[in-house]
């Protein structure tokens, strides 16, 4: 198994090394596919596969432009996000314009923590579908894929503070869904 960093593999791939490409593909195949599946909730598997393939073809086309100073994961997911933006019409969502007058949330609040720390994984998959496209995408990139808010800001062409605000709101929404879900479970089980 090749232990080289993603960036080193990408450099080799850009020079024409097929094995480096294969290793990178194996490392990121599941992550990218899962990202598309979660992001395009309700989409048919065909659509997910199409966008997955388009993303890799775009990575191939742009491989010589890859700057080894940046993280490969961040770069690849930027391409994935742009692919979605290009090909899927997004529903308008309220979180797009973030007011400067929003209250800052205390850092110890659950809404500043990754949702994986306080929510069941199975419930998360269902709850993500209930979020609008924009917040869902940012939440997936942050809490599931592990990108920082600054990386996400770069991918989405937004400010860092806007991304953090969207994350806070998305996590609060999930918290509401979780409470509702808990309430319904208690009712059903008597």
């Amino acid at each position: 198994m090749d232990e080289s960093s993603d960036e080193a593999l990408m450099q080799a791939y850009a020079s024409g090394d097929a094995r480096s490409f294969q290793t990178l593909f194996t490392r990121y195949e599941k992550r990218l596919r899962s990202f598309f599946f979660r992001r395009l909730s309700g989409a048919r598997q065909n659509a997910v596969e199409d966008l997955f393939q388009i993303t890799w073809l775009k990575i191939h086309q742009a491989r010589k432009k890859f700057d080894s100073e940046q993280r490969f994961g961040s770069w690849a997911f930027t391409i994935a996000v742009n692919t979605i933006r290009d090909h899927v019409r997004e529903a308008r969502w309220k979180y797009e314009s973030v007011s400067d007058h929003l209250e800052e949330t205390a850092s110890t609040d659950e809404s500043s923590q990754s949702v994986l720390q306080w929510v069941d994984r199975q419930f998360l998959e269902e709850a993500l579908k209930k979020l609008q496209d924009g917040p869902r995408e940012i939440l997936i990139l942050s809490d599931i894929e592990g990108f920082s808010s600054s990386e996400i800001a770069k991918m989405k062409n937004k400010s860092d503070s806007a991304v953090r605000q969207i994350l806070v709101r998305a996590r609060l929404r999930l918290k509401e869904f979780a409470k509702l879900n808990q309430g319904e479970s208690k009712k059903n089980h008597g």
Partner: peptide, 10 residues
Amino acid sequence: LMSAIRGALE
């Protein structure tokens, strides 16, 4: 996909 990209590299 892998076959197509490997082909392109060749």
